[in-house]
Write a protein that binds this DNA or RNA. Structure first.
Lengths: 125, 125, 125, 125
DNA sequence: GTGGTCTAGACCACG
DNA sequence: GTGGTCTAGACCACC
C-alpha cells in the first residue's frame, strides 16, 4: 500500500505522512477505519517503529487520524481537510503558472497540458 | 540584489543558487558578465564565504557560470539552459495539475487562474 | 448514563471514575444505592469488564463506593468527600486565576465570567 | 532556568514545551533571542538530546520558535500567540468556575480568591 | 496486543 | 559547532 523511496531527499516519516494523508483524502481510507498498528506497518515497510510513530503523530496533529491508547489509530471524521487541501493546491498552481509565464512558456501550452490531463487519463502517483 | 530568508528551511547555498540562476534565466545577468567575487558577496550577505563558494560551485556544475582562475567567475553563454528550465517547469505543471484534478478542482478554475496570471501582470519572486 | 469519549486521551477507566464520582457528588447516585454490576456496565458501554473492574477499584479506593462480596457495589455514605472535592476545586481556581493574571486578563473580565455563570444557569458536563 | 519534575505524569518534552512557551509569553525570552542548543540544554537537564529535539520541534510547530539548520533555534516574532493564550485561559476559567458552581462553592468565595490574587501577590510557577 | 515516551548512539547536511 | 533523522532496544500504561 505504501512504497518508500530511499532516493527521495525528504525524511521517511514525511513520505509516509504524505502517502497516508493522500489515501485519506482520496477516500481509500475511510473515516473510522482502523490504521495498521505501529509495529505492523514498521515491519511491513522494514523500518523502525519510532518512524511510524512519528508519522502517525504528525497525522494526528494535522487531524487526519486519532489514536486510542491500547486500541489503535483510526481515520478521523474530518471534513474541512479536503477543502484545505484544495486551497493549498490552488496556491501551488498559481506559483507554478507564474513561473511558467516568467520563463516564457506560452499560455496555449498550458491550456494544452490541462486539456490532456482532464480529458485523457489519469496519472496517479 | 539577493535577499536571504532565514525562515526558509532550505540550505542557504541552495537559496543563492536559485536566486542567481533565476537572474541569469531572466536575462538580468547577461552572458559574459562578471559575477561578484566570493568574498564580496559573502560580506554583502553577511554569511560565510564557504557558503558562497559552494553556491558558485553548484552554479558552475549546472552550467550557469564558469570560473577563470585568478580572474573570477563569469556568466556562461548558455542557451540550452532556458530550454531545460522550461521542460522542468512543464513537468511540475503536469504534476500540480494532475493533483488538482485528483482533488476535484474544476478545469474552469484552472483556466481562470491561468487567465488572470497571463493578463494581469504579476508575481515575479 | 455514561458516555465514553474515545477521542479523550485519558484512559477509559479514568473517564469512568470521573463520571461516576461526579454523579455521586451531585447527588444523582445516593448513598446506599446499588451500582450496576461490573458485567452489566461493561456490556452497556461495550468495553472490557476489566476496565470497569479497575474503575470500581479506584472508586472504592477513593471512598466513593464499597463492595460486598457476592452482593455487589454500593455508594458510600460519604460526607467529607464533597468537602474534599470543594477544596480541590479551590486549588484549581487559584491556579487558573493566577495564570489569568500573569497573562494580563483583567480582574473585571473574570468577575464578568463568574457573574454570567452564576446567574444564567449553564454547563453541566 | 528550567526544572523538570519526574513525579509529574506528563512527558518530559511536554513539560519543557510548557515551561519555554511560558518564558516566551512572559517576555523573559524575547523575539530573536537564541535558544540554548539542543545538546547543551540536554546536558544541563541531564536528559537525552532527542527529548529536547522533540520539545523544540513542538515549539516550532506552535510558532514559538524557528530553527535555522547549522545555526540554532531562535525565538520567533510572534504576535497573536499571547492573544491565543489569553483565549485559552478564558476557556479554562469558565470550566473551573462552572465546576465550582456545580459543587456548591459560593460566588463570594470565588470573588475573594480573585481579590487576594489580584491585590496581594504573585504565585509564579 | 495496542500506543507513547525515553535513552543511547549513529549518521547526515549545513555553516 | 549546529539541527534533523533514523535505529535499536527498553519500559510504561492501557485494554
Amino acid at each position: 500500500m505504501i512504497i518508500l523511496d530511499y532516493n527521495d531527499r525528504r525524511p521517511l516519516y514525511e513520505q509516509i505522512v504524505d502517502k497516508i494523508s493522500n489515501l485519506i483524502l482520496k477516500g481509500i481510507l475511510k473515516p473510522g477505519d482502523k490504521m495498521p498498528s505501529v509495529r505492523n506497518l514498521a515491519m511491513e515497510l522494514a523500518i523502525n517503529p519510532n518512524t511510524i510513530q512519528r508519522a502517525y503523530g504528525e497525522l494526528e496533529h494535522r487531524g487526519y487520524i486519532y489514536s486510542v491508547k491500547g486500541r489503535g489509530n483510526f481515520v478521523s471524521h474530518s471534513e474541512s481537510l479536503i477543502q484545505k487541501k484544495q486551497e493549498e493546491t490552488c496556491w501551488r498552481l498559481q506559483d507554478v503558472i507564474s513561473e511558467a509565464k516568467t520563463y516564457g512558456i506560452r499560455e496555449e501550452k498550458i491550456a494544452k497540458i490541462v486539456k490532456t490531463i482532464y480529458e485523457g487519463g489519469e496519472k496517479d502517483d
